[in-house]
Computed example of a mutant assay.
Amino acid sequence: MAARIAKAIEHVEHPNCYLPTFLPHGSAGGVPRVAARQAVVVRFTEQETVTGLFSKDCILPCPFSPGDYEVIYWQKGDKIVHSYYDQSDQLERQDPDYRHRTHLFHENIPSGNASLKLSNLTVTDEGSYNCYVGTQQTKTEVEVMLHVRDQLSSVEGSSTAIPCEYSNNTTNNEGVSVVWTLNRNAVISVLASFNGTSHSYQPRVQINQNDFSLKLCDLTANDSGEYLCNISTPHYTKLTARTLQVACCGKGLNRWLLSVATNCPQN
């Protein structure tokens, strides 16, 4: 195996075939690429789309044709997400953002499964991922688009605060405009806005003028839905989506405690 890794890559002038071997460690991002002595079939698949929930785990699919000497390489842009060769994980050059958060299903690799489990999803995980798998027989490339949704849970009668992503690089809110809307069953309702001063257009809602989060008091099941925070500054515009699920019940002491925690008035 060591002799294979030491070889340089070779090419054949053919649109569908090449004769690669292994790149030495430290080349091509530190991940060896596999090839066979015979012509290799290059297999591309259509883009996959995966939606995960914030702080939860999700699986990015990457099927390939089983072969010998598997090399698996997951990448997001120029970030190395996960590498595997020599029948083990190779994480020395893994990007710090993914440390202790990635997992391959080693027992399923021989059968053609290079899917990656990504744990504790964050909003910054959203984007396009590329999976490269090389064996002596074939080379496969799969693109996976990951969408991350933030689902909040609460109970009827309680209160909550829905965050809005905002990078505050100034000491004041001059030039900042914020609009909160609710998308429920394809019906859009404007809840509140901020443009120097805050305005509420629905009962039980209020914008926090420090971080522009949305406070909701005395929740009901009808408050379930997708909340959108559209924030505009002289430098950028950003839309943040949060999903709120309100379950039944939650009266008495729990309601009082949550109302106090978010500074909401009690009925």
Rank of each mutant, 00 (worst) to 15 (best):
I5L: 13
K7I: 06
A8C: 04
A8G: 10
E10K: 11
H14L: 08
H14G: 04
P15M: 05
P15K: 08
L23H: 08
G26P: 00
S27I: 05
A28W: 01
A35D: 09
R37I: 12
V42D: 12
E46V: 05
T49I: 13
V50A: 01
S55N: 13
K56Q: 15
Y69I: 10
E70F: 03
Y73L: 11
Q75E: 14
Q75N: 11
S83D: 13
Y84W: 14
Q90E: 13
D97F: 01
Y98D: 00
R101Y: 00
H103G: 03
N108R: 15
N108H: 13
S111A: 15
L118Y: 01
S119P: 03
G127M: 09
N130Y: 08
N130L: 13
T135E: 04
V144Q: 00
D150I: 03
D150H: 15
Q151E: 13
S154Q: 12
V155Y: 14
G157I: 07
T160N: 06
A161H: 04
P163V: 04
P163Y: 02
V178E: 09
V190G: 05
S200D: 14
Q202R: 15
Q209T: 14
L214I: 10
C217Y: 09
G225P: 11
L228M: 11
C229A: 11
S232L: 08
Y236C: 06
T240V: 08
R242S: 13
R242V: 15
L244I: 12
V246Y: 02
C249F: 09
N254G: 15
R255S: 15
L258S: 15
T262Q: 08
C264S: 14
Q266C: 02
